[in-house]
Amino acid sequence: MTTFIEEFGAIWGGFLATLSLTALSGVLSLAIGTLLATMRVSPVGPLRTVGTAYVEIVRNTPLTLIFFGFVFVLPTLGIVPGLGFQTALLALTLYTSAFVCEALRSGVNSVGIGQAEAARSIGLTFGQTLSQVVLPQAWRTAIPPLISVLIALTKNTSVAAGFAYMELVAVQRTLMTKHPQDGLFIFFGIAVMYLAITIPLGILASRVEKKVAFAR
């Protein structure tokens, strides 16, 4: 217990690192994921193909492999992303945006067909149908899955521990090596840190979910 208090500075640093990485890559992957989702429902064939291929490949690739690619493969091509935060940010954004795309797309799918048909029958174009009728409704259903994507992202930032970024799990590793006898305390202490991010998000998700469910 005392170890936990003594080392709280390091743990807090790790917490902030995890939090900033989560927040930044979350925002970026929301943007890219929306773009991908638009590509996947667009009338332009090549765009659909690219979007689908990207999502399928990334979803079936382990995140560790993507990190590995950024750390070891890109430098041999002469592209050297800064080790640590930058690499982690790139890899996580690349990975998470595929899941954001899928969450949004399932939101779009959950909008009744009648809505789009009604929109078309009063003469709206594709862009108008999507932006004025379908997307506003899709957002509502997509928010809970999007939140769970964010929860997963929070946990996924831990992979950066293996690639030279000092976030919570990396701090955990250092502390456990330093004070092996207090291992369990450190584990539960850091677990609380993670739960402090994920549980509020989870509660928010179920709140939104209930609201959406009653509105339908």
Partner: peptide, 19 residues
């Protein structure tokens, strides 16, 4: 369930390995 679901897998692996 909620506890084990809310933690990164890597963290659990390190627990087993180091502790």
């Amino acid at each position: 369930v909620e506890f084990s679901r809310g933690l990164p897998v890597l963290m659990l692996m390190f627990l087993a390995k180091l502790v």
